[in-house]
Write a protein that binds this DNA or RNA. Sequence first.
DNA 1: TTCACCCGTTATGTATACAGGAGGAATACA
DNA 2: TGTATTCCTCCTGTATACATAACGGGTGAA
Lengths: 251, 251
Amino acid sequence: MAEGEFERSVSQTMKAQLALRELILSGALRQGERLSELAVVERLGVSRTPVRMALVRLEEEGLLEAIPSGGFAVKAFSESDIDDAIEIRGALEGLAARFAAERGVARGRLAELKDCLAEIDALKGLSDGSEESFSDYVRLNARFHALLHALADSPALMRQIERACALPFASPSGFVQAQARLPQSRFILVLAQDQHRCLVEAIENREGERADALAREHARLARRNLRLAFRDPSALDLVAGAALIKRPGRH
Amino acid sequence: MAEGEFERSVSQTMKAQLALRELILSGALRQGERLSELAVVERLGVSRTPVRMALVRLEEEGLLEAIPSGGFAVKAFSESDIDDAIEIRGALEGLAARFAAERGVARGRLAELKDCLAEIDALKGLSDGSEESFSDYVRLNARFHALLHALADSPALMRQIERACALPFASPSGFVQAQARLPQSRFILVLAQDQHRCLVEAIENREGERADALAREHARLARRNLRLAFRDPSALDLVAGAALIKRPGRH
DNA sequence: TTCACCCGTTATGTATACAGGAGGAATACA
DNA sequence: TGTATTCCTCCTGTATACATAACGGGTGAA
């Protein structure tokens, strides 16, 4: 399939889902705002049926909530909602790491993980704050976590993890972009990479409990980044879905 | 709303969802079977739109899987899929118990849990195997777990737990019905109730790690019940959704 | 006999029409 | 002026019609 054909070949439902998700995460739709189907139809140029489909899926995804009297509204998240979502991801990634450690994994797959670590180590520009290094880091970090999730070799767990990561600020990549703007959180990158290394080591040594604990603690780095980002609004705006966060200070 | 009006007042989508779920769990639709929308329309008497809605929701629920070329098929689960689903529930309930323990809960809500325990203790007929005692136990056990989930006071976690319990054999009540038929698994009831008590105690004493470990181990009782039920087909048929389980023995 | 291709049937994806109901504005009354 | 009521508008839920793509049967050739 050629690149240019993508927009035409993909289903209208998928198009609506992607476009709506983008509108929600970018903050184009305000939190709590009710989504009129007709308005979305006009905005996206697809008919009501695929729009409805997309709305249902985005509700399951957690970005929308059903209004009792019918229809959907953009969800809003408090700081403790985010904390919990991160903790949930930690618990699930912890379980994945534990599965990998206790059940064992093929040598080749562990090598992939180690390659990923080495590539991150090779990113020398990170501490200089260059933009391209950071986007590389974002990509590699996402890949590391994807490999880790797959390592558990459990479709059910994979499903639940994907669900947990659907909330952008709960995903492993959620706050990484913001870190580029926060000098204080550069240090966290070093911690994160060391945790990555320890995690792989724990899995290799089949230390399930240790792998679990490390994965949980690793997820909690996202909470620290969140705290730092709250102090620096320009960084917070780099977080995907920041518009969904309920902030007491703002009206 | 009067009882009799239920069928008329509820939306067609909900009707279709409930009816389809029942058809799937009861085994009226075979695992792997593709669901033709038109066939469902004829069977349920509602039009394609609500049927499609229900199909999408049941896919998100995990009972159906999307076929790449379009449409949906009834999902099938291997023994290890079920094991994993139970372990995932354990991890999430463990997190809920940990939240409750570490963050503390109001005295009144703990009292509700204790009342529930006392009611289970009061079921004298359990060891005799009387049917009505068992259905009472099923109800009380479900209530205990619902109270426990709510104790964490975390909407995000509640959501994930509900999702995990959507698979009937992963839910806390999944194998309880089957236990009535299995003399060997009666003993498990005693263990379960003791774990319930220890769990409440741990939460009360704010022992987060202990509460977590207990909840996980408690979930694993479901695995033991599954193993026992596999040996006794008449008990396995009492498990909701047993028809979805892939069994190497059966063709 | 087996494989490949073609064509008809059927199912899904999409669009749209219609009905019932919720929500808001305007008006009448206290 | 405040409140209740009524009416109107818009929206959602549902049904159905249409187009396109998939699946299977059948026929032909190797």
